[in-house]
C-alpha cells in the first residue's frame, strides 16, 4: 500500500484507537503493568516505522499484537542472554497488587498460574478469552489451522486449570448452568 498523507493520517487515527486494547493485551501477556507500558511504547514506535507494511487498515489490531509479541520475545531472549532471572515474585509485585479485587489471594493465584504457561498458551488464551476473537480470527491472525487453534486452546486451559488447582486446592465453583 503506498503511504500517502491520507493513509498516514488514517493509520495514526486507527493506531490511536487501538492503544487501550493493546495495553490491555500487553498487560495480560506480560503480567506487569509498567513492563507492558514500555512494551506498548516500543510497539508504537515500530508500528510507525513499519506503517507501509500494513496492507489492510482493518487488520491493524492483529498486526499490532504481532509486533508486540515479537518485541516481547526479543526482550525475553535478551534478558535470558544477560542472565536476568525472571521469577514469579515479579508478577506478585506487579499487576495484582495494583488491582482492586474482592479476592486478592485468588487474583494472585490466577496471575501466578497464567505466568507459568508458555507464551504460546498465554497468547491463545488471551486472544479468545480477553480480546474476544473467534477461532477463525485467531487462526488467521496466528496463521495456523483452526484445528491447531482448538487443540492449543484446550491444552492451555487445561494447564491453567491444573496450575490453579495445584496452587489453591479449594472447592471449584459449581452450579453455573452449562
Amino acid at each position: 500500500m503506498p503511504v500517502t498523507a491520507g493513509h498516514r493520517d488514517a493509520f495514526t487515527v486507527a493506531l490511536t484507537a487501538q492503544l487501550p486494547g493493546l495495553r490491555r493485551y500487553a498487560t495480560a501477556l506480560v503480567g506487569n503493568g509498567a513492563a507492558a507500558d514500555d512494551l506498548v511504547q516500543d510497539c508504537i514506535e515500530r508500528a510507525l516505522r513499519q506503517a507501509a507494511k500494513l496492507e489492510e487498515l482493518q487488520r491493524i489490531g492483529g498486526w499490532l499484537r504481532s509486533i508486540l509479541h515479537n518485541l516481547y520475545i526479543d526482550d525475553l531472549r535478551r534478558r535470558r542472554r544477560q542472565g536476568v532471572k525472571v521469577d514469579l515474585a515479579d508478577v506478585e509485585n506487579s499487576f495484582a497488587v495494583v488491582t482492586p479485587a474482592r479476592d486478592h489471594a485468588s487474583i494472585i493465584d490466577f496471575e501466578r498460574a497464567l505466568a507459568t504457561l508458555t507464551l504460546e498458551h498465554r497468547q491463545i488464551l488471551l486472544l479468545i478469552g480477553l480480546e474476544g476473537l473467534n477461532y477463525q480470527e485467531v487462526a488467521d491472525e496466528l496463521e495456523i489451522p483452526i484445528g491447531t487453534v482448538m487443540s492449543r486452546l484446550a491444552r492451555a486451559r487445561e494447564r491453567l486449570r491444573g496450575e490453579m488447582e495445584r496452587s489453591s486446592p479449594r472447592a471449584p465453583e459449581t452450579g453455573t448452568s452449562p
Binding site: 490491555r24 495480560a28 488464551l125 478469552g129 471449584p172 465453583e173 453455573t176
Partner: peptide
C-alpha cells in the same frame, strides 16, 4: 462434566475481570 465447564468458564471470566479494566484507563 458440569464442574469442569463451570471451572473453565470461571477462568475465562477471570481474565476479563482482571485485565478488562486496563483497556478503560
Amino acid at each position: 462434566l458440569a464442574r469442569k465447564i463451570a471451572a473453565f468458564r470461571a477462568d475465562k471470566a477471570r481474565l476479563v475481570e482482571l485485565y478488562g479494566p486496563v483497556g478503560e484507563r
